[in-house]
Amino acid sequence: MIHLSPWDLGLASLLVLLLAGMSWRLRLGVEGRVLIAAARSTLQLMLVGLVLKILFNQTSLPLIGLMALVMLSAAGFEVMQRQKRRYLGHWGYSIGVFSMFLSSFSVTLLALTVIIGVDPWYQPQYLIPLLGMLLGNTMSGVAIALDNLTRHAWESRGPIEARLLAGGTWEQAIEGVRRESLRSGLIPIVNAMGTAGLVSLPGMMTGQILAGGPPLEAAKYQLMIMFLIAAGTGLGSMAAVWIGSRRLFDERHRLRLDRLRVSEGSKPRPA
């Protein structure tokens, strides 16, 4: 494996600077965000590299648990940030965190104990990268599904209430919106599976090949990861959409859009 020097990384970062420069020149207005995101990823990845180095030497369950918690809470925050109309109160945060916890952690655990058979199961070299990949993908799925759920519910207030008035339960009234938002959460991973190998070599496989691993071995790992991700994303989106849609109604089956944050510049229609 060829080691990368800071100089090599500097060269690569020039490309990002170039992109930022172009954005400024073309008045795209994203140069600030590009630079901040690049700086964030530099800092975060360097830090996590250091942390993992320490973690790998110890194999201590409390430390690994702490790391997993940090990852989960960061993912929860990210999901919340991506909502146009987020839930008010703790729900804006906890729906995402709970559904990601439910899906990512259980699928990771399953992979470690049953599929790969790591001993001890919490060996950080396996646990952290697996959990990271699952969390990252589940996060996207959950964020998209929840965002679609709340936005569609907001826009379809008329039809939803019409179904309630026709003697429907809250579940019948939200059925269509729910199905639509779940589908949107699953589309990215389905697409990724469909084009894997043909168009793109997925990131994990690329990494393993670049690090000198045998390609077939890398492909097998990638395949497993993708199945895990599909299951995790599906489970996470379903949990999020179920809890989220339940939260949109109260015990008398009323549509409670007042439980969502009003986005800037618009007020709820006073009926």
Partner: peptide, 8 residues
């Protein structure tokens, strides 16, 4: 009464 029944 169940809300759905009431509204019906």
């Amino acid at each position: 009464m169940a809300p759905a029944l009431w509204r019906r």
